[in-house]
Design a protein around this nucleic acid. Structure first.
Lengths: 154, 154
DNA sequence: ACTATTGGTCAATAATATTGACTATCAATA
DNA sequence: TATTGATAGTCAATATTATTGACCAATAGT
């Protein structure tokens, strides 16, 4: 009979928080070391979402990704624009909509951040194997899908 | 050949954030519905950590759990005390240390919160099975352990 | 054309976190 | 035991981040 693992009686939300902190700290340190030391807290999630070949996202999408009001998202974008990471460019299709895109500097930061993320990803892969990593991601995805259920408000 | 799942190119930190939000929204709604509608954001993590028979934790532990300064943790505790959820009680062993414990009201809230958490846990278990849930939690634990590595600052 | 909806801003305020300076207790040792 | 250093926490001031409320422009659906 196995002894219970150390995390046996830590609730899943707490595990999620700490796991996310691991990525957060690693990415933050990499960015700081590379001179990108003026990125606000939620900025990492914005850059992360823009990282790979995404050409631009509307503010409204950030609102969903960050689960904040659109004013807060707008303010965050303001800061990131002021610090040279992002640009607002109008979308041709719908002239209400402003797309947020990476500047040169923003792209450089996003790449540093992505590299740090991959360091952790690789550690995990090495530690657990592809099978379990995939199971973890599947579990996380299932939790996200739970939000469409009626016991979780949108 | 399987089509890639919808979350295939969402980075793990983003998955973690959204998964945590699922728990957060569900617990928040349950608390609101039960009349506990004045709990600050990080308060859920405090109550969650105190939930099951834990008799009291020092502020310093909250600092680690929340990854904030001790001042921020102290301020959060102030608010929770003012609103009747927590008490500060001196620890006999070490008179510098103040233990944070649940009041009656705090315990009631913690129970509502735990029930909401379990609803999500059950959903996940039903959806994925015990095996995969355990794999997910193991993955999260491995990520947390990664913080002892030198590529993640403490 | 009219109305409702969507995407976003501006301004003011509230909530939350940080930096800096400080007190009290404890632990180790000379 | 006096002294030094580390630990646990507070107080005060400020900075940062998020929310509420009021608004405008463009689009979508009659």
């Amino acid at each position: 009979m196995q002894p219970p693992p150390w995390y046996a009686d830590i609730a899943t939300p707490a595990l999620l928080r700490h796991a996310r902190t691991t990525y957060g700290k690693a990415m933050r340190k990499a960015l700081d070391d590379a001179g990108f030391d003026d990125i606000p807290a939620n900025g990492l999630d914005v850059l992360g979402g823009l990282a790979h070949g995404v050409r631009g996202v509307p503010i409204g999408q950030l609102v969903h990704e960050l689960s904040v009001t659109k004013q807060a998202a707008g303010q965050l974008v303001d800061t990131l624009v002021a610090r040279g990471y992002l640009e607002r460019t109008p979308d041709g299709k719908d002239r209400r909509q402003l797309l947020v895109t990476l500047t040169e500097r923003g792209l450089a930061a996003a790449e540093v951040q992505a590299a740090a993320r991959e360091t952790i990803d690789d550690f995990l892969l090495d530690r657990l194997g592809a099978q379990k990593v995939e199971a973890m991601r599947e579990g996380l995805a299932a939790l996200i899908e739970a939000r469409t259920k009626d016991f979780v408000p949108h």
